[in-house]
């Protein structure tokens, strides 16, 4: 099962490697990982997308909590939540493809943020599966480059992850 884990961690040198090292040492899987400081600069927030059985997820949460720098850990996917990922995708945009690519970007509510006479860069936000759908909806031969941020997530309503 796919899970989205949110972590509040002390914003110290090496904090990221403590978490990523834990995942590799214990054989847990990381699909995506994002990290950045929060409004409180002494704290970083990390979002990790991982897969595993319930038992594995229980261990992941416990092992993360055991890290001395980790302040809080939440499995966002246990309740209502929102996930977003940002993708920048550079595509060939010439001839009839130019109009078609514009149309596709519109359908997916993407924005074209860079234009040359032969390329577009499309900015797209959404769930990971939406980004995947965009990639499969366009002609793969036209894709020149993609970059994705990995998932960021937040709980809905009153679910708040804070110190």
């Amino acid at each position: 099962m796919r899970h989205i884990i949110s972590i509040l961690i002390e914003n110290e040198a090496g904090a990221l490697s403590r978490v990523s090292g834990l995942f590799s040492a214990r054989g847990y899987n990381i699909e995506t990982l994002t990290v950045a400081p929060t409004e409180d600069a002494s704290l970083s927030r990390m979002t990790i997308v991982t897969t595993g059985s319930d038992e594995v997820l229980e261990q992941i949460t416990k092992q993360l909590n055991k890290l001395v720098d980790v302040v809080k850990v939440v499995d966002l996917s246990e309740a209502a939540h929102i996930e977003r990922e940002l993708m920048l995708i550079k595509v060939r945009a010439t001839g009839k493809d130019r109009e078609e690519m514009k149309r596709m970007a519109d359908i997916f509510r993407g924005r074209i943020i860079d234009v040359t006479d032969s390329t577009y860069v499309v900015e797209l936000t959404g769930s990971s599966s939406k980004l995947d759908s965009f990639i499969s909806a366009i002609d793969t031969g036209l894709i020149l480059e993609t970059v994705r941020t990995g998932v960021s997530g937040i709980g809905r309503g009153d679910r708040i992850l804070k110190v």
Binding site: A13, G14, S17, R18, G21, A25, V68, D69
Partner: peptide, 14 residues
Amino acid sequence: MVGITRPCVKHNFL
């Protein structure tokens, strides 16, 4: 040292 010992300490500091 902090990198080498990370997986085998409870915690470490530089």
